[in-house]
């Protein structure tokens, strides 16, 4: 196995152009497990962990551009005010050692439906900035995931950054696992209130071949909030409406039975999490108003 250790981002892109089969290493908390279990034997590894260009974030025009090499520890410590949903999700990732090592770009590149960062980024309306030696482009996150472990990255492309609008309202993330920490999601759900746009964003994890938005549920609850002018009044969301929201979220999922849970439980739990996160976020919105 060849291991490339570029010293700069431009060098990394050059290496990737010359060796498109090389697998990026951006923390290694998924990739090294695959290697150890014999599930992956890549021809070449492209080590991105040393690249300073990927390790920082900045704020620009209402958006945060997060370098692909930013760790979950950094997301928790530095970005909780701008991206509270992502920060909550980051706190549920693995152990402190894993969070010190694992990166946001790695989470996107692995493209597991259970990736904890993905639902809150979907709910927030994030884009992925990808680059090759020749060009750079932005892909809406919901178009980035094609299938389990398959992304829209083309040969020669690497993830450069994730661009996320700064939260304009309360955000929540909630997941289910069979223990109280260090657990891969049986199912997860993220919710973001966008009072400015009068919209509600959602993201579903671990309940379909790829992370999803529950667009019908988003439209429904957005409609309820508009119809009753709840954004302005801050009145409570009627119970039947939040229940219906939960049902629509559950209906958007395409879960399977596996070692972590059953179809029935995943749908049931999604509906519960959707109702609860909506209630928490709405309560925060009302108390902030």
């Amino acid at each position: 196995m060849d291991i490339y250790r570029p010293a700069s981002w431009s060098e990394a892109l050059e290496v990737k152009r010359g060796a498109p089969e090389s697998v990026p290493l951006a923390g290694g908390t998924d990739l090294m497990v695959d290697l150890n279990f014999g599930r992956a034997r890549p021809q070449a590894l492209l080590d991105l962990t040393r690249l300073a260009e990927l390790a920082g974030w900045d704020r620009d025009n209402g958006r945060v551009r997060i370098g692909a090499g930013v760790t979950f520890t950094t997301l928790i410590a530095e970005l909780a005010p701008e991206l509270p949903g992502l920060a909550i999700a980051s706190r549920t990732v693995g152990s402190p050692q894993i969070r010190n090592r694992a990166t946001l770009g790695g989470n996107l590149g692995t493209a597991s439906p259970a990736g904890d960062a993905l639902p809150p980024l979907l709910a927030a309306g994030a884009e992925v900035e990808v680059a090759s030696a020749a060009r750079s482009r932005r892909i809406p996150l919901e178009d980035f995931f094609i299938a389990p472990k398959v992304t829209a990255l083309e040969g020669g492309e690497l993830i450069a950054a994730i661009v996320v609008p700064v939260a304009d309202g309360p955000q929540q993330y909630s997941k289910i696992g069979t223990r109280n920490a260090m657990v891969i999601a049986t199912v997860s759900f993220a919710l973001a209130l966008h009072p400015g746009r009068r919209r509600v964003g959602t993201g579903i994890g671990s309940a379909a071949p790829r992370p999803l938005r529950a667009t019908e549920a988003e439209d429904f609850i957005g409609g309820v909030l508009a119809e009753h002018d709840l954004w302005s009044s801050g009145a409570p969301i009627p119970e039947p409406a939040s229940a219906r929201f939960g049902e629509l979220v559950a209906a958007a999922a395409q879960p399977i039975d596996d070692v972590r849970g059953t179809v029935a439980y995943r749908r049931h739990a999604l509906a519960v999490l959707a109702r609860r996160t909506l209630a928490w976020a709405w309560s925060d919105y009302r108390s902030a108003a």
């Binding site: 549920t92 997941k175 289910i176 696992g177 109280n180 920490a181 999601a185």
Partner: peptide, 15 residues
Amino acid sequence: IRELPGGVSNATHGE
């Protein structure tokens, strides 16, 4: 939340 079922997964706030 660390003292509640689900722990850091943030599944309940007491509900």
